[in-house]
């Protein structure tokens, strides 16, 4: 049907993953960090789909569904934690939550 190279798909996934990682490291706002994690997860899912398509097998898509489920669970718990943190510290600054300093 088409000639999309696997290379191109994987490159797209890698770029998205790197962007997500960059966002995670750059931002201090904890909600942005969560969003960046979502981007990274999405990129990983994309990589799975690309790989699955290469062999025309459903396994890649199955893995994507698992990642999707995990992302949903993760975001719900993460948001609850953010709420709690905000109530305790009155800020979204992730550096403020540094009580575990050794």
């Amino acid at each position: 049907m088409n000639g999309i190279s696997m290379e191109a798909g994987l490159l797209l996934a890698a770029i998205l993953f790197a962007l997500g990682l960059m966002g995670l490291l750059m931002r201090r706002n904890i909600i942005f960090m969560l969003v960046s994690v979502e981007i990274m997860l999405n990129a990983a899912g994309l990589a799975f789909i690309v790989a699955g398509m290469r062999w025309a097998q459903p396994d890649g898509q199955v893995m994507f569904i698992f990642i999707l489920t995990m992302a949903a669970a993760e975001v719900s718990v993460g948001l609850a934690l953010i709420l709690q943190l905000y109530h305790q510290l009155k800020t979204l600054d992730s550096d403020a939550a540094s009580r575990m300093r050794g």
Binding site: L25, S94, D95, A97, R99, M100, R101, G102
Partner: peptide
Amino acid sequence: FTRTQTGMLR
């Protein structure tokens, strides 16, 4: 190694 435990997520 305690010094590496900054408590900072980033």
